[in-house]
Simulated assay, not measured.
Amino acid sequence: MKEIDARGLACPAPVLQTKAAIELEGAVDIQVTVDNPAAQQNVQRFMESKGFSTRLDSEGGDYHITGHAAEGAAGAPTSAAAPAKRTPQDEHQRIVVLCATDRLGSGDDVLGRKLMINFIKTLKEMGPDLWQLIFVNNGVKLAIDDSPVLDELKAYEADGLTILVCGTCLDHFNLLERKKVGTTTNMLDIVTAMQLADKTISL
């Protein structure tokens, strides 16, 4: 069994080490140890995206994610957040909206928050071209329990929109347990999504 000790490593290092073990070394049995829940969620989700069955054990502040490859696992998508590259038959754009803040503009925070609320509520006008909504840094506060746009985000997700929320950012603000919408993600998924997108809108 391939064993990886990724304790103390910042995102996305635990996922990248797991990726290298699976894709470059061909590991079919792997155990990754991390020391925070954001890394645990990201590593476990990555393994499962590669076709691995997983088991989670915790001990003290450590998380041990054990994975076993199913037949054909190596052909699974590289990122849980991003599907295969575009084909000529695709009729819609892939627009990624990257929110690194919970307000729009600078000068007046109250106005900025109102503008962001209106922006999120109006995103539905993009229709099926809106592909992924990604929250990083202060933007993750829009995905927690007291978010003024939580209902709208839940509705978007229910309609099929992929919403990614940075796990490192949630952990930094001590908000991991308060996230109520979207998938806890890592920089590998974010970079992959931006690479495959036709357009990225950054706020």
Rank of each mutant, 00 (worst) to 15 (best):
G139C: 06
F135M: 08
T185G: 12
V15Q: 04
Q89G: 01
I95N: 04
K85C: 00
A73D: 01
A100W: 01
E157N: 12
A143I: 04
C99A: 14
M126R: 12
F173T: 04
H64D: 01
H64L: 14
A158V: 08
L203I: 14
M47R: 01
L164T: 02
A27N: 07
V34N: 05
T122F: 04
I95W: 09
P148E: 10
G167I: 10
D129I: 12
E25C: 05
K179F: 01
T183C: 07
I30H: 03
L123M: 10
K121R: 15
A20F: 15
V136F: 02
E48N: 02
R86T: 13
R7A: 05
E25W: 06
K19F: 15
H92Q: 13
G160T: 08
P12M: 14
F173I: 05
K19N: 13
V140K: 02
I4Q: 07
A197R: 03
A100M: 07
G167H: 06
L142I: 06
I190C: 06
G105R: 09
M194F: 10
Q195V: 14
L175T: 01
S147C: 04
S202I: 14
G167M: 12
A38K: 03
P14F: 10
V181W: 03
T168N: 15
F119L: 13
L133F: 05
L111S: 12
D109R: 11
S58P: 00
Y63I: 00
T192H: 09
D145G: 08
E25P: 02
E23W: 08
L123P: 05
G160V: 10
I190M: 14
V32Q: 04
T200V: 15
E91D: 11
T66W: 01
